[in-house]
Computed example of a mutant assay.
Amino acid sequence: MTRPASPPAPKPLALVCPAGTPAALDAAVEAGADAVYCGYADATNARNFPGLNFSPVEMRAAVARTHRAGRALYIAINTFPRAGEEAVWHRAVDNAAEAGADAVILADLGLLAYAQAHHPNLRLHLSVQAAASTPEAIRYLAQAFGVQRVVLPRVLTLAEVTALTAAVAPVETEVFAFGGMCVMAEGRCQLSSYVTGQSPNTHGVCSPAGAVQFRREAGGDVTARLNDITIDRHAAGSPAGYPTLCKGRFRANGTTGYLFEEPTSLNAADHIPGLIAGGVRALKIEGRQRGHAYVARVVAEFRRAIDAAVAGGFTLPDLASEMEGGRATAGAYDRRWR
């Protein structure tokens, strides 16, 4: 087990960054991440895509590299165990403790109990997948399992985040600031399972690669399908994102459009000063399925913005090129639709 020789002193707002590959991990550290979060290459990880994530051997090496740089590494074991297969998730917790992870990010109550009982010195963070958004829920999880940090769901306003942070102290809060969004309640999405038989909550993947098909039609257009369901059609040469049901385009009432959610990225960068003032402990970037160039760019921009805000000045990150669909929203942080 490896640990940093001298853990870095807490910062007013730590920057927690994604890494789906060793290259992305190195990019995050070099760009200024205070902590990096990764997952194992199996269903225990909510970004369970082919070619991503880490074996136990690779994770041990990743922890060692991160610690040599004086940073922290968190391991996301943030799906819910399938009945009869709990040993797979237990083994992931064991592997994380053996690797020397600074924390594990868990959503399932049974896994929290297992980690507390078998690895009492392992720091526990509550995943956003647990959807804990009330003082009572967070206090219970802290008292029952020793949870030390909660990643809050992306449905709270800045005022609500601030009030909740004060109410649950000394439990730390962490919030998402940039990246992909989902219209479903955290940890409750079943759309993918209806079409593919696999749920992101238990299999760790939304729109599994084996179900994705792109077909070129006679006129040159490209259709995107999940199994036998067409969920989008793009003109020849136009950009096409990874197909998911919630961001598909469908025809209804004579109109074709995005019925659930348009491709848009969360970007809460302009709330950084307010999050610091509100006592939030960490800011999280989404994107373990993205490449190292994305990680390097987004992390560097947020590092600059956070440091400027702490120093008393502030400039917004320039991240238009990294936004899904070229558009961004602050989401629920200011909830302008009220």
Rank of each mutant, 00 (worst) to 15 (best):
P4D: 03
A5H: 11
A9G: 03
P10M: 03
K11P: 00
K11S: 05
K11Y: 00
A14E: 15
L15S: 10
V16R: 07
P18F: 14
T21Q: 04
V29S: 00
G32D: 11
A33I: 11
A41Y: 02
A43W: 00
N45R: 10
N48T: 03
F49K: 08
G51C: 09
N53H: 09
S55V: 04
V57F: 10
E58D: 06
M59Y: 10
R60V: 03
V63F: 01
V63G: 02
A64T: 15
G70S: 12
L73I: 13
P81H: 06
P81S: 12
G84I: 07
H90V: 02
R91E: 14
D94R: 04
A97N: 09
E98T: 12
A99K: 12
D108I: 10
A113E: 13
N121Y: 10
A130C: 03
A130W: 11
A131E: 06
A132E: 04
T134R: 07
E136I: 13
L141K: 04
Q143C: 06
F145W: 15
V150R: 01
V155W: 10
L164Q: 11
A169L: 03
V171A: 06
V175T: 07
M181L: 15
C182H: 04
C182M: 08
V183N: 11
E186H: 14
T196K: 11
G197P: 12
T202I: 09
T202Q: 13
V205W: 03
S207K: 05
P208E: 02
G210V: 13
F214Y: 15
F214L: 14
E217G: 01
G220K: 06
A224G: 14
A224W: 02
D232A: 15
D232F: 02
A235T: 14
G241H: 11
Y242S: 05
P243S: 06
K247P: 00
G248K: 10
G248Q: 05
F250L: 11
A252R: 09
A252W: 07
N253F: 12
G254E: 12
L266N: 02
N267D: 15
D270M: 06
D270G: 05
I276K: 06
G278H: 01
H292Y: 06
A296Q: 13
R297Q: 14
E301Q: 14
E301F: 04
R304S: 08
A309H: 03
F314H: 10
T315H: 14
P317N: 09
L319C: 12
L319P: 12
E322K: 00
M323Y: 03
G326N: 07
R327Q: 12
T329R: 13
G331T: 02
A332S: 14
R336S: 09
